[in-house]
Each structure stands twice: as C-alpha cells, then as structure tokens.
Simulated scan of single mutants.
Amino acid sequence: MTASVDLAMVNLDSSDPAGHAAFYHEALGWEVTHSQPEYAMISSGGVSIGFGLVEGYRPPSWPDQTGDLAAAEETFLAAGASKPAFQPGGERWVVLLDPIGQPFCICPRPQG
C-alpha cells in the first residue's frame, strides 16, 4: 500500500519555545532550525516539531481526575472496540482494541 499522506509537522503550545526546542534537540538529537522567543522548531528527516508561545500557557495536569474514562470506554465498546485483559495504565488510561485489533489508548483530556 502506498501512503497518500505523510506527517510533516506537529506544533506544540509552549510557555518557552526556545527552551522547549532546546530540550527536545538534546533528547532527540534533532537540529534546531528556528529559535526565537515566540516560536522555535526542530527538524529531522523532513519532519518538524514547532513550539509556539502561548501567553498564560498552563501545562496540563496529569493524571487528570476530572475526565470520565468509564463513559468514553462505554462509547468505544458500543462502537465495536474490545478491551484486552492486560491494562498497564491502571486508573490513568484504558487500552482498547479497534475492530481489526489495533490497540489504542484513551485517557482524560487535560482541562484548562
């Protein structure tokens, strides 16, 4: 099967784009291709991660106790997903299998 689309870039909100890019540069070894206080980017192999300044940015809380995993799980199961016995996430996330057996995780969306 030939892919008709490809991932080129992901952007993340940040309170410190240059610092964020520097961290992932060190962690991943990707090149810092742009770095300013309001926006920074790292790139490797035709894929980039951008970090954009968001004034007043607050990082998500983890784990988020306000999400309703049970309701989300029920919705996915009703749509045809199944739930394997092994659940490594405990109370933080649920592993489900789509109708053809591909695993995916659900977790509460960070609030704020």
Rank of each mutant, 00 (worst) to 15 (best):
I49C: 02
L53C: 02
S4L: 15
F104C: 01
P63T: 10
F104S: 03
Q102C: 12
P17D: 05
T2N: 14
P103N: 11
D68S: 04
G29K: 09
G80D: 05
G89W: 10
W62N: 08
A79H: 11
P99Y: 12
A18W: 00
M9V: 10
V94P: 02
D98F: 08
V32A: 02
W93Y: 15
L28W: 11
E91M: 10
M1T: 13
A81L: 08
D98S: 09
T75E: 14
L97F: 03
P63A: 07
P17E: 04
E26M: 07
V5L: 14
R92L: 10
S61V: 12
V32N: 01
T75G: 06
P103F: 09
P108R: 12
C107M: 15
C105M: 15
P84T: 11
D6S: 14
T75I: 13
D13L: 06
V47Y: 11
A27E: 06
G112Q: 07
G101V: 04
P99K: 07
D6C: 11
F76Q: 06
C105I: 11
A70H: 07
Q65D: 13
G101M: 12
A70P: 00
Y57T: 02
S43F: 02
T75P: 00
A81M: 07
S35H: 03
L7I: 13
V54K: 14
E91V: 12
M1Q: 13
G80Q: 05
P88I: 11
S61F: 05
Q36I: 05
D98M: 09
G90H: 12
Q87A: 10
P108I: 10
D16I: 05
T66P: 00
G50Y: 06
P88R: 09
A81C: 13
G90N: 12
I100Q: 15
D13K: 09
D6V: 13
V94R: 15
P37W: 07
L12A: 05
A71W: 09
P37G: 02
T2S: 15
P59W: 05
L77R: 03
F76R: 06
V54A: 08
Y57M: 05
P99E: 13
G67H: 04
M41P: 00
F104D: 01
S82M: 04
E91K: 15
D64N: 14
N11P: 00
I42S: 01
D6T: 14
T66F: 07
L69D: 01
D6Y: 12
A27M: 14
A78W: 08
P60N: 10
D64Q: 12
I42W: 00
S82K: 03
S14L: 07
Y57S: 00
T2W: 10
M9C: 05
S4H: 15
F23V: 00
F104T: 04
S48R: 01
A27C: 10
E91C: 01
E55L: 14
Q65E: 15
L7K: 05
S35N: 13
S43G: 08
L96N: 02
C105Q: 15
E73G: 00
E91I: 04
L53G: 01
Q87Y: 11
V47K: 09
G52V: 10
W93E: 08
T33M: 04
V47C: 07
